[in-house]
Computed example of a mutant assay.
Amino acid sequence: MFYLIGAGGHAKVILEILEDQMELIGGLVDTNNTITQLLDYPVTKGLEDIYRIEEDKVIVSIGANHIRKIITDRSKNKYRYGRLVHSKAIVSSRSSIGVGTVIMPGVVINTGVSIGEHCIINTSTSIDHDCYVGDFAHLSPNSTLAGNVQVGEGAHIGIGASIIPGIKIGKWATIGAGAVIIRDVPDFAVVIGVPGKVIRYNNTYGE
């Protein structure tokens, strides 16, 4: 059985992946007391109220990368995290996917790819051979990684962004929507445009 931490829009998509995989859904938790139900599932305030069995699995269903990290850092060894792959994703058997990571429909992940823990690989993302995606990263819909790209911890790749082969994206960097990345991106950098240019730097955790 799966439980979700977070009951916003991102959680709706994860609930439908669970339904697609015919997984049992125990419920969700959220600190917003006004949310009592999402789709057809109950929302409570504390996971401890409903998470009972060691075999049960948890997904942090929150889109903000830094919040997923904060929650999982605070709950180390407390929960058993699952991973989810939609049936309409194409994932090479020679790739690896960390716990807590969610792969949305239309995604293509080719051979030799390594994806870390608690990542979001969003709708119709394309990840080519031998790429590495660090923990807590988010690859937005229709983003494209060519071969041998490295994406650092907590980085956010915007909608429709394209990254040429061999590029390194630093940790907690932000790549703007539609950007074309042809040079390595430093840690915490915010990059926009074609070709991508650094316009400023994020604070800790990409905020």
Rank of each mutant, 00 (worst) to 15 (best):
N65A: 15
I181K: 09
E55Y: 10
I59S: 12
F2C: 03
D135F: 02
A189C: 14
Y132G: 06
D30K: 04
V102L: 07
Q37G: 06
H156T: 07
N110I: 05
G106R: 04
I192C: 13
A64S: 14
V13T: 12
I199H: 07
I167V: 14
A173Q: 11
S61Q: 11
G193D: 08
I50K: 11
K45R: 14
R52I: 11
E23H: 14
E153L: 07
K69I: 09
T34C: 00
D135L: 03
K88A: 08
L39E: 15
I109D: 02
H66K: 14
V198C: 13
I182V: 15
H10M: 00
N77C: 07
K88G: 01
D73T: 13
I17W: 06
S124P: 04
M22I: 08
I192M: 13
N148M: 10
S87A: 10
G152D: 04
S75Y: 08
T174V: 14
K76C: 07
K12W: 07
V60D: 12
K168P: 00
K168S: 12
G6P: 01
G46T: 14
V133C: 02
T174E: 01
R80P: 02
Y205F: 15
M1Q: 08
I121R: 03
S126I: 13
H156D: 06
V99Q: 15
D128W: 05
I121K: 01
G147F: 00
D73Y: 09
E48R: 14
I25G: 02
I103P: 02
S87W: 02
Y132I: 12
F188A: 13
E54P: 11
G9E: 06
R200C: 09
P105C: 09
V133W: 02
I35H: 07
R52G: 06
W172R: 02
L18T: 03
V58E: 13
I17A: 07
I67W: 08
L38K: 02
